[in-house]
Design a protein around this nucleic acid. Structure first.
Lengths: 154, 154
DNA sequence: ATTGATGCAAAAGATTTGCAAACTG
DNA sequence: CAGTTTGCAAATCTTTTGCATCAAT
């Protein structure tokens, strides 16, 4: 299941922008839209290599930049030294709660908050072009699942 | 003018915590509290070296970690690859608007926003231990000063 | 005296880049 | 075919670390 729709949308956008559509780009795009996780560049590379042993790390980084520039991908700094990504197509804007106990990332959306953000920027005479809210939290022990994908500075 | 007050507060806290108070630590602390800018590790090193040619980069990084751990310093990822710091003593919590045109960082505070953040975390069954809101904006040309301290990925 | 802090240089981690070869449109 | 993209390895950048030495308590 490669979410053909999204892949095609990306393919067309890149081609329309004069860029080329290669097997690697298709693979990376498929993997990006095939996961619902917040992945790191390295994890993305690993996932891609599971399907094609010889995808280059550089190609993944380059495609990551392209996808982000085209607005298909959003990056999230988890505050513990890790930079993770999530695909954007078809998702409404949302913010994140990041658990400092188990590194779990929970998404949430709050219209009031969004409205207030826009208003604040406006009030300061700026044009809002992006925003990012992170709530660092600690979950209660019962709720907290056995750590998944830990990442701390080495 | 070395803001003696803040320096002493830091000195005492570190000593009380069993750490030592050295000339380097005093210098770094003085510089940190002597600026109102959002500085990078490298800029801090440069500012320190202006006063003492031979402060080590490692010492600056180590002190940065200490100050942050003690809550005297907050770090801010500007989203363009740069990590910057600001001292915290005597400042109320605030968020940031980061201009994508000139890299200027504007601080702002909004009680409603703060309240809502806390409430959202609570509603999700989490204990809020930290939060960070960044609004990426573009300022109008007249307002936008000639770029100051640009920083883009090399 | 002890034990933590410093400085240096080397190490590490993550991302970027130069370049020749391969491939897309 | 012309111009992009890829893969590889080497280069960068930022931050961390090992260790001998120095100095604060």
């Amino acid at each position: 299941m490669d979410s053909p729709d999204e892949i095609e949308v990306v393919a067309r956008r890149l081609r329309d922008g004069g860029q080329r559509w290669t097997p690697q780009r298709r693979l990376i795009t498929a993997v990006v839209f095939g996961t619902h996780e917040h992945f790191s560049a390295d994890e993305l590379l690993a996932m891609c290599r599971r399907r094609d042993r010889k995808v280059s790390r550089a190609t993944v980084y380059r495609m990551l930049a392209v996808l982000e520039a085209e607005g298909f991908l959003a990056s999230l700094d988890t505050g513990d030294g890790g930079l993770r990504y999530e695909h954007v197509l078809g998702h409404d804007h949302h913010d994140h709660m990041i658990c400092r106990t188990c590194a779990r990332i929970v998404e949430f959306a709050d219209p009031d908050l969004e409205q207030r953000k826009a208003e604040l920027a406006r009030r300061h005479g700026f044009r809002l072009v992006g925003h990012e809210l992170k709530l660092f939290v600690e979950c209660l022990d019962e709720t907290c699942p056995g750590r998944q994908g830990r990442r701390r500075k080495p």
